[in-house]
Simulated scan of single mutants.
Amino acid sequence: MRILVVEDDETLSDGIGKALRLENFAVDIAHNGEDGRHLGATEHYDAAVLDLGLPKVDGITVLQSWRTGGHDLPVLILTARDGWAEKVAGFKAGADDYLIKPFRVQELIMRLRALIRRSSGHASSRINCGPLMFDAQIGHFEFNGLPLRLTAFEWRVLSVLILHKETVVERRALMERVYEYDADVDSNSLEVIVGRLRRKIGQEMIQTIRGRGYLLTENNN
């Protein structure tokens, strides 16, 4: 899964990015509203963290631009503005959640996970697909009741697939949610990751849909 962080405080944004990467997320960071607006409109993200007091273009304008452009990524506003009027403006512009600075990074991560889960249509944090279980609130996988050890890239691929289980995830969309903006990506890297996952959970669970992408399924027929 991939997160966009739009925050002009470089120390804070770098700290958020580091914490998210430790939880296996891919992270892109923009330090002004102009760059953030462009990335959110042209790249595929599972969620965005958006400051309001940004240089060049303010956060409310960025959010309004995304929404009027039809971009429905979940957005968590992160700001020091704690007045009721600011919160109302944020939600009216299309925000999904609102967190006031100072904050605990772990709370930010938990809120993002909840936003991503709900936007994928899951009411419960525990998502099952046959012998595979994903606790979306803590980012933990189990297979046949035992913890599943995954690399960061494997976790990103499998988390996207299980959030959209029994649905074909287009190859391009999956690639865009696994790698960061400036990553140097080999053309067959996704296939390599999927191959490693199949060795861990079984060949039959991840099906290749030729010309389209991948399907995580518990139906082995």
Rank of each mutant, 00 (worst) to 15 (best):
G36T: 05
G36N: 08
R37D: 07
R37A: 13
L39E: 01
A41E: 14
A41S: 15
T42I: 10
E43G: 01
Y45V: 11
Y45T: 11
Y45C: 10
D46C: 14
D46E: 15
A47W: 05
A48Q: 03
L50W: 06
D51T: 04
D51R: 06
L52P: 09
G53S: 15
G53L: 13
L54M: 05
L54A: 01
P55S: 03
P55H: 04
K56V: 14
V57K: 11
D58Q: 12
G59M: 04
G59P: 09
G59V: 05
I60Q: 01
T61R: 12
V62N: 00
L63P: 09
Q64C: 02
S65F: 01
W66K: 03
T68C: 01
G70P: 08
D72P: 02
P74K: 05
A80I: 03
A80H: 05
D82T: 07
W84D: 14
A85C: 00
E86D: 14
V88E: 11
V88M: 09
G94E: 02
A95F: 08
D96C: 04
D96Q: 13
I109F: 06
M110F: 10
R111D: 09
R113S: 06
R113M: 06
A114S: 12
A114H: 09
L115M: 11
L115R: 12
R117G: 01
R118W: 00
S119N: 14
S120V: 00
S120N: 14
S120A: 14
G121K: 05
H122G: 00
A123G: 13
S124W: 00
S125Q: 05
R126G: 00
N128T: 12
C129I: 09
P131L: 02
M133Q: 14
D135C: 03
A136P: 06
A136Y: 00
A136M: 02
G139I: 09
H140R: 15
F141W: 05
F141Q: 10
F141L: 07
E142Y: 04
E142W: 05
F143I: 13
F143M: 13
N144Y: 10
G145L: 10
P147H: 08
L150Q: 12
A152M: 06
F153E: 14
F153K: 14
F153R: 14
F153S: 14
W155E: 03
W155C: 01
V157T: 13
V157L: 10
V157R: 09
L158Q: 09
L158D: 07
L158W: 07
L158V: 03
L158N: 08
S159G: 10
V160S: 10
I162W: 02
H164A: 10
H164K: 14
K165G: 02
K165W: 02
E166A: 13
E166C: 07
T167D: 13
V169W: 12
V169C: 15
